[in-house]
Amino acid sequence: MALLLHSNSATHRGAGKYTPENTLASLRIDAEYCHKMVKFDVTLSEYDVAF
């Protein structure tokens, strides 16, 4: 896996190519890539619980 050092980009759902999307593992990979932002998809259940 090639790392992009000092990236100024953002990711969507984390590093889905290497780990499951929307997980802490994908966020850790993004930190290794030096991404500044991550956008996650969040939905509310009928009980107003985010998932």
Rank of each mutant, 00 (worst) to 15 (best):
D48C: 07
T11W: 02
E21R: 10
L44R: 14
A15W: 04
H35V: 07
D48A: 08
H12Q: 05
S7A: 15
G16D: 05
Y18L: 10
G14F: 07
Y47S: 13
T23E: 06
H6A: 04
D48L: 12
G14W: 09
L24W: 03
P20W: 08
A2N: 10
Y18C: 05
L5Q: 14
D30G: 08
L4A: 13
T11V: 14
S7V: 08
D30V: 00
L3F: 15
C34Y: 00
V42H: 05
S45P: 03
H6N: 15
N22M: 11
D41K: 08
D41F: 11
L3N: 12
Y33H: 13
T11A: 10
G14D: 03
N22W: 07
K17G: 09
T11Q: 09
Y33L: 11
S26Q: 06
A50M: 11
M37V: 01
R13E: 10
L3S: 12
L24C: 05
S45A: 12
A10P: 03
S9P: 01
A10M: 03
G14L: 10
E21V: 05
L24D: 02
S26I: 09
T19Y: 07
S9I: 00
L24E: 08
A25K: 14
L4S: 12
G16K: 11
A50Q: 06
F51K: 08
Y33T: 00
H12I: 08
K36H: 07
H6F: 02
T23P: 15
M1F: 14
S9M: 03
L27H: 02
S7M: 09
A15C: 13
H12W: 14
T23D: 03
Y47T: 15
L27E: 06
Y33P: 02
D48S: 11
G16T: 10
R13P: 03
Y18G: 02
A10K: 03
G14S: 11
K39S: 01
Y47W: 05
F51Y: 14
T43C: 07
K39P: 00
E32I: 01
Y18D: 05
D30S: 11
G16Q: 07
D41E: 06
H12V: 11
E32V: 00
S9E: 05
V38M: 12
M1L: 14
D30P: 03
N8V: 02
E46R: 14
D41A: 06
L5D: 06
D30I: 00
C34R: 01
Y18K: 06
T23C: 10
K36W: 00
Y33S: 00
M1P: 15
A2C: 06
A15T: 03
A25L: 13
T11M: 07
A31Y: 13
N22D: 08
Y18H: 08
K17S: 13
S26L: 11
A10R: 03
F40T: 06
A25Q: 09
I29F: 08
T11I: 12
F40E: 04
H6V: 01
E21T: 05
S9L: 10
R13T: 04
L3V: 15
K17M: 09
L27Y: 13
N8I: 01
T43A: 12
K17R: 09
P20V: 02
H12N: 06
H35L: 07
D30C: 15
